[in-house]
């Protein structure tokens, strides 16, 4: 399955947003979704910090698709310059067409630790349990979400919105997030220890090292460690 690479899982969700205006607010549903997501940027930290095993994720609104097209420059167009008898319709048919989406889509793309089997159900259940209220606020403006009542119905709704990944590339690593955060904490602390303890007597260095190990507890994932989404040291 191409959604999985090692233990990492690539979740791609496109949820169609209702067309029309929010009752009493004079704002389109898609713009309401946009406002909500923008408001998450003003919180002390993202609600996604509470969703277990999330490496990186993003939200955006897909308003439309794009087709870049130049005004002409095809073979027939050249002929048309020379032979004005070539009807304009023929020239236009050769140029790329312009698609327009009829719905706008809430796009949610997440990279998370899913284990070798890619436990997407477990991840989505964890997401519902952690930030259920935020999910209801956001997805509440999407088609089909009125069927969602609990974690199980949320999982089945999200699977209807899921698109299979064609190619997933993992450039970092695919360990569980708590293991990655602990490793980052250790790297930071050990680099500082190495700098602070240069040129010491062997016995003093050994004693300092033992105190350091007791403090950082390298095999204890629960702490001390970095918090998910931590942006200050």
């Amino acid at each position: 399955m191409t959604n999985i690479s090692g233990n990492a899982y690539a979740l791609t969700i496109l949820s169609p947003i209702r067309t029309g205006v929010v009752k009493g607010e004079e704002i389109e549903y898609a713009d309401k979704v946009r406002d909500l997501l923008e408001s998450w940027n003003l919180l002390p930290n993202s609600p996604m910090t509470q969703v277990p095993q999330t490496y990186l994720c993003r939200f955006f609104v897909l308003d439309d698709v794009y087709t870049e097209s130049l005004p002409g420059a095809s073979v027939m167009d050249t002929f048309a310059d020379v032979l004005p008898v070539v009807p304009d319709g023929v020239r236009r048919r050769i140029l790329p067409k312009e698609d327009r989406l009829k719905s706008r889509y809430l796009v949610f793309s997440s990279n998370f630790y899913g284990g070798p089997q890619g436990d997407v159900d477990g991840y989505l259940r964890g997401m519902w349990n952690a930030i259920g209220e935020h999910i209801k606020d956001l997805w509440g403006y999407c088609y089909g979400f009125d069927q969602v009542r609990d974690a199980a119905t949320f999982v089945s709704y999200m699977k209807k919105c899921q698109l299979p990944v064609t190619l997933f590339f993992v450039g970092a690593n695919d360990e569980p997030l708590p293991a990655q955060l602990k490793a980052l904490y250790l790297k930071q602390e050990f680099a500082r220890f190495a700098v602070a303890n240069q040129g010491l007597e062997a016995a003093v260095l050994r004693a300092n090292y033992q105190a350091f190990i007791a403090r950082v507890a390298p095999t204890n994932l629960s702490g001390p460690t970095w918090e998910p989404g931590q942006y200050r040291l």
């Binding site: 993202s46 910090t49 990186l56 993003r58 609104v61 794009y66 690593n173 490793a183 980052l184 998910p228």
Partner: peptide
Amino acid sequence: NQIETLHYYNGYPLATSNDVKSASAVRDAL
């Protein structure tokens, strides 16, 4: 063809991809 992201979350905003990989090496060696 690029679309702007509205909300972006990073589990380890202080680290680069190379930091994540080297952190595993440091932890294992330690």
